[in-house]
Design a protein around this nucleic acid. Structure first.
Lengths: 138, 138
DNA sequence: TATAATTTCTCTAGCGACTAGAGGTTCAAG
DNA sequence: CTTGAACCTCTAGTCGCTAGAGAAATTATA
């Protein structure tokens, strides 16, 4: 039996976040001591690990709710889980593409500034004022 | 003289967002008609373009405040603008690195699920439950 | 000029995923 | 049995917007 603090130490998830996951319905409302304090068991430790791992991979709370739902119904087909993972992968790839375009522009802009001149001649500032200087859309 | 709606159409920035930028101090509080409606000129159009461009590149409102500050004091050294751009570039590169690690893991996880079996045997779900299956940290 | 349609005004609240703090209660060690 | 750490609930704040209510101003048409 873990207190919320012990669970937090075990999993690396902060205490208010654990309570937040309970509010969001990702963690069940566990049993309490007579003094109203939460007491967790192995099952909750594992589920919290699952949640944390999914969060680290960028899944939304909403998506995790679906994943947990599947996880607790092992007889249901797993196509939905695969779809969620592929959606997430698509999102990540989109973000990477977008960020790489930004990287190119920012590198170009940052390189143009040697920091020695006055702001009136600064390439960073003039680049921001004039989108036309950018090589691509962003 | 533009109304806020005209400014919005010109720049592609939504009306509530324009008012938000004013609240945040990025756009000056412009003159009003007798009926209290905002009227903008060329200067605001350009500044809003600057803001939008910087936002598109991922600069925070806070960073943009500094950039605008420099922009309106052309006599000051531009080293700060360069530093802000390099910070932003560093942020973007960090995000890219992180997302690329996620991409690898997600691709591995998603690939393991052909969607035909029951959730009880789903590779996506078991991967989420067991971080140890991951090739690297994330 | 009268009226109707559109735009604008301010203000409040909501999004996602937490995080921080106040003020009070319970637990565990000595 | 006292002390201090950990816990409880609740509210509000973070960021960068976005949506909606209800009222007032502006613009277009008859």
């Amino acid at each position: 039996m873990f207190s919320i603090g012990a669970l937090s130490r075990e999993t690396g998830v902060k205490i208010p976040t654990i309570r937040y996951y309970e509010d969001m319905g990702l963690l069940a409302a566990v049993e309490r001591t007579q003094g109203n304090q939460r007491r967790y068991g192995r099952a909750e430790l594992e589920r919290l690990g699952f949640i944390r791992h999914a969060r680290d991979l960028g899944f939304s709370i909403e998506a995790i709710r679906s994943l947990i739902d599947l996880n607790t119904h092992p007889d249901r087909p797993c196509a939905e889980a695969g779809a969620l993972a592929r959606d997430q992968l698509g999102d990540v790839r989109e973000k990477i593409t977008r960020l790489q375009r930004l990287e190119v522009e920012l590198a170009r802009i940052a390189k143009g500034c040697n920091g020695s001149g006055p702001a009136g001649e600064c390439y960073v500032l003039s680049s921001l004022a004039d989108h036309g200087k950018c090589g691509s859309e962003h």
